[in-house]
Lab assay of single mutants.
Amino acid sequence: TEYKLVVVGAGGVGKSALTIQLIQNHFVDEYDPTIEDSYRKQVVIDGETCLLDILDTAGQEEYSAMRDQYMRTGEGFLCVFAINNTKSFEDIHQYREQIKRVKDSDDVPMVLVGNKCDLAARTVESRQAQDLARSYGIPYIETSAKTRQGVEDAFYTLVREIRQH
């Protein structure tokens, strides 16, 4: 089974770092803004072998026109913010609204991801993020692309959301 996953969120929150940590098991430290990259990885989730087709997208506003296209083809979405960047957390709402509009559905598989949880300088409390996820009816997972904490959990949870859909 193949799953088309799309990673969305503001610029600099760590979308590529999360994806590369999942696929290649290493942490990319330097920031190089993405336009669009796709990665494929075969994994076993709950005993089922599946192929993850992951689209890593641009957070930069100037590429926002490309969003409709990949939102149409994606089956599930990782909505990523950084726990030390309140603005990126506030941006999640717009991504969710755009996904709902493009998919013409209120019920699209999504996982809210709070990345950079290895950093002490948190400005978005776990509780705020949990409340937001609960209001959307989606899971919330904290990750660190640096330490790998929660990385597999985030992507695998999204696959489970798609399966249950």
Score class of each variant (00 low, 15 high):
residue 1 T to H: 10
residue 1 T to V: 09
residue 3 Y to C: 10
residue 3 Y to Q: 06
residue 3 Y to M: 06
residue 4 K to F: 04
residue 5 L to P: 01
residue 5 L to N: 01
residue 5 L to R: 00
residue 7 V to N: 01
residue 7 V to R: 01
residue 8 V to K: 02
residue 8 V to T: 03
residue 9 G to F: 01
residue 9 G to H: 01
residue 10 A to D: 09
residue 10 A to I: 07
residue 11 G to T: 13
residue 12 G to R: 10
residue 12 G to T: 13
residue 12 G to V: 13
residue 13 V to E: 03
residue 14 G to H: 00
residue 14 G to T: 00
residue 14 G to V: 00
residue 15 K to I: 02
residue 16 S to V: 01
residue 16 S to R: 00
residue 17 A to F: 01
residue 17 A to Y: 00
residue 17 A to R: 03
residue 18 L to K: 02
residue 19 T to R: 01
residue 19 T to Q: 03
residue 19 T to Y: 00
residue 20 I to E: 03
residue 21 Q to R: 07
residue 22 L to M: 09
residue 22 L to R: 11
residue 22 L to I: 07
residue 23 I to E: 01
residue 24 Q to S: 15
residue 24 Q to C: 13
residue 25 N to M: 08
residue 25 N to I: 05
residue 25 N to F: 04
residue 26 H to G: 14
residue 27 F to N: 01
residue 28 V to L: 07
residue 29 D to I: 04
residue 29 D to V: 06
residue 29 D to F: 07
residue 29 D to N: 12
residue 29 D to T: 06
residue 30 E to M: 05
residue 30 E to K: 02
residue 31 Y to E: 02
residue 32 D to I: 05
residue 33 P to R: 05
residue 34 T to K: 01
residue 35 I to D: 01
residue 35 I to A: 02
residue 36 E to M: 01
residue 36 E to Y: 04
residue 37 D to G: 00
residue 37 D to I: 00
residue 37 D to P: 00
residue 37 D to W: 00
residue 38 S to D: 02
residue 38 S to Y: 03
residue 38 S to H: 01
residue 39 Y to P: 00
residue 39 Y to C: 02
residue 40 R to E: 02
residue 41 K to I: 12
residue 43 V to D: 10
residue 43 V to H: 14
residue 44 V to G: 07
residue 46 D to S: 08
residue 47 G to S: 07
residue 47 G to M: 07
residue 48 E to G: 08
residue 48 E to Y: 12
residue 49 T to C: 11
residue 51 L to Y: 09
residue 51 L to G: 07
residue 53 D to H: 03
residue 53 D to A: 03
residue 53 D to S: 03
residue 53 D to V: 01
residue 55 L to E: 15
residue 56 D to S: 00
residue 57 T to E: 01
residue 57 T to A: 04
residue 59 G to Y: 03
residue 60 Q to Y: 15
residue 61 E to G: 14
residue 63 Y to K: 09
residue 63 Y to H: 10
residue 64 S to P: 13
residue 65 A to W: 11
residue 65 A to H: 09
residue 66 M to A: 14
residue 67 R to M: 15
residue 67 R to I: 15
residue 68 D to G: 06
residue 68 D to F: 05
residue 68 D to L: 06
residue 69 Q to D: 14
residue 69 Q to V: 06
residue 69 Q to I: 06
residue 70 Y to C: 13
residue 70 Y to I: 15
residue 70 Y to W: 06
residue 70 Y to R: 06
residue 70 Y to K: 05
residue 70 Y to D: 15
residue 71 M to T: 11
residue 72 R to Y: 10
residue 73 T to H: 12
residue 74 G to P: 07
residue 74 G to V: 14
residue 75 E to I: 12
residue 75 E to M: 13
residue 78 L to Q: 01
residue 78 L to N: 02
residue 79 C to N: 01
residue 79 C to I: 14
residue 79 C to R: 01
residue 79 C to F: 15
residue 80 V to E: 02
residue 80 V to F: 14
residue 80 V to H: 02
residue 81 F to M: 12
residue 82 A to R: 08
residue 83 I to Q: 12
residue 84 N to T: 10
residue 84 N to I: 05
residue 84 N to A: 12
residue 85 N to P: 01
residue 85 N to I: 04
residue 85 N to C: 11
residue 86 T to Y: 09
residue 86 T to H: 13
residue 88 S to H: 06
residue 88 S to T: 10
residue 89 F to D: 02
residue 90 E to D: 13
residue 90 E to I: 08
residue 91 D to L: 15
residue 91 D to W: 14
residue 91 D to P: 04
residue 92 I to M: 09
residue 92 I to A: 06
residue 92 I to L: 13
residue 93 H to Y: 10
residue 93 H to G: 12
residue 94 Q to P: 05
residue 94 Q to G: 13
residue 94 Q to H: 14
residue 95 Y to D: 03
residue 95 Y to E: 07
residue 95 Y to F: 11
residue 96 R to P: 05
residue 97 E to H: 07
residue 97 E to G: 05
residue 97 E to I: 04
residue 98 Q to I: 15
residue 98 Q to Y: 15
residue 99 I to K: 03
residue 101 R to K: 08
residue 101 R to F: 05
residue 103 K to N: 08
residue 103 K to G: 05
residue 104 D to K: 11
residue 104 D to F: 08
residue 105 S to Y: 08
residue 105 S to A: 10
residue 107 D to A: 10
residue 107 D to S: 12
residue 108 V to R: 03
residue 108 V to H: 03
residue 108 V to F: 12
residue 109 P to V: 10
residue 109 P to K: 10
residue 109 P to G: 03
residue 110 M to S: 01
residue 110 M to Q: 01
residue 111 V to I: 12
residue 112 L to P: 01
residue 113 V to R: 02
residue 114 G to K: 01
residue 115 N to L: 15
residue 115 N to Q: 14
residue 117 C to E: 13
residue 117 C to K: 07
residue 118 D to Y: 01
residue 118 D to F: 00
residue 119 L to Q: 14
residue 120 A to F: 08
residue 120 A to T: 09
residue 121 A to Y: 05
residue 121 A to K: 11
residue 121 A to L: 07
residue 122 R to K: 10
residue 122 R to I: 08
residue 122 R to Y: 14
residue 122 R to G: 13
residue 122 R to T: 13
residue 125 E to W: 07
residue 125 E to A: 09
residue 126 S to Q: 08
residue 127 R to T: 12
residue 127 R to H: 07
residue 128 Q to D: 10
residue 129 A to M: 11
residue 129 A to R: 04
residue 129 A to G: 11
residue 129 A to C: 07
residue 130 Q to F: 07
residue 130 Q to W: 07
residue 131 D to M: 08
residue 132 L to T: 05
residue 133 A to G: 04
residue 133 A to C: 07
residue 133 A to T: 04
residue 133 A to W: 04
residue 133 A to E: 03
residue 134 R to I: 12
residue 134 R to P: 02
residue 134 R to H: 10
residue 134 R to V: 06
residue 135 S to N: 10
residue 135 S to L: 09
residue 135 S to D: 11
residue 136 Y to K: 05
residue 137 G to S: 06
residue 137 G to W: 02
residue 137 G to D: 09
residue 137 G to Q: 05
residue 137 G to T: 04
residue 138 I to N: 04
residue 138 I to M: 08
residue 138 I to Y: 06
residue 139 P to K: 06
residue 139 P to S: 06
residue 140 Y to M: 05
residue 141 I to D: 01
residue 141 I to A: 06
residue 141 I to M: 05
residue 142 E to P: 04
residue 143 T to S: 08
residue 143 T to N: 06
residue 144 S to H: 11
residue 144 S to L: 02
residue 144 S to W: 03
residue 144 S to Q: 13
residue 145 A to D: 00
residue 146 K to F: 15
residue 147 T to S: 12
residue 149 Q to M: 06
residue 149 Q to H: 08
residue 149 Q to R: 09
residue 150 G to C: 10
residue 151 V to A: 13
residue 153 D to A: 08
residue 153 D to C: 05
residue 154 A to Q: 02
residue 155 F to P: 01
residue 156 Y to I: 14
residue 156 Y to T: 13
residue 157 T to G: 05
residue 158 L to W: 05
residue 158 L to M: 06
residue 158 L to S: 02
residue 159 V to N: 02
residue 159 V to P: 00
residue 160 R to N: 12
residue 161 E to N: 09
residue 162 I to K: 05
residue 163 R to H: 04
residue 163 R to N: 10
residue 164 Q to H: 07
residue 165 H to A: 11
residue 165 H to Q: 12
